[in-house]
């Protein structure tokens, strides 16, 4: 389905590991810097990755975050095993969250995660099966493109 990527790397994320939540986003940022991408592209992807990583830490048992590098875009897939999202439309609205106090004490869980990911990416898709898990796919274009439509 996908074109061949120039490079891909997969990072595991553990659920409920609050102490390390954010390390994967930081490691991926270092990788993107090594690739010499524009600073704004790195920043947008890093913010999306951090929010996605914290979603896994807060809600899922485990996940993989895969980075795929193409000539004109960076694609990220986050596939988790967990409870899934019962109502994606509800979860996509800012302020809607099922977070606990412990999650909010870490500075997250205010219902801004998925909207923040969408805001910082050029392509965004979320699929979820209740009781199985959630898959996020998003991408940031590394070269400017004309707006479609």
């Amino acid at each position: 389905m996908d074109r061949d990527s120039l490079y891909r790397e997969t990072f595991p994320i553990k659920g409920d590991d609050f102490e390390r939540g954010g390390e994967v986003a930081t490691r991926v940022k270092a990788l993107l810097q090594q690739l010499g991408l524009p600073r704004d592209v790195i920043r947008r992807l890093s913010i999306a990755n951090f929010e996605a990583e914290m979603n896994v830490v807060m809600y899922a048992r485990e996940a993989t975050l895969e980075v795929l590098v193409f000539p004109d875009l960076i694609r990220v897939q986050v596939v988790d095993r967990g409870p899934g999202i019962a109502d994606i439309d509800w979860a996509m609205q800012e302020g809607h969250s099922t977070a606990t106090e412990a999650m909010r004490a870490r500075g997250f869980g205010a219902g801004l995660g998925l909207p923040n990911i969408q805001r910082n990416t050029d392509e965004f898709e979320v699929k979820s099966d209740a009781g199985v898990g959630t898959t996020l796919r998003y991408a940031v274009h590394t070269t400017p493109r004309p707006k479609e439509g």
Binding site: G22, R39, R43, S46, M54, G107
Partner: peptide, 17 residues
């Protein structure tokens, strides 16, 4: 400027430059 003392505070500063 924050009152959050967890590791997420520094990861946030790092990813958001």
């Amino acid at each position: 400027v924050t009152g959050l003392a967890s590791s997420q505070m520094v990861h946030t500063a790092e990813v958001a430059d």
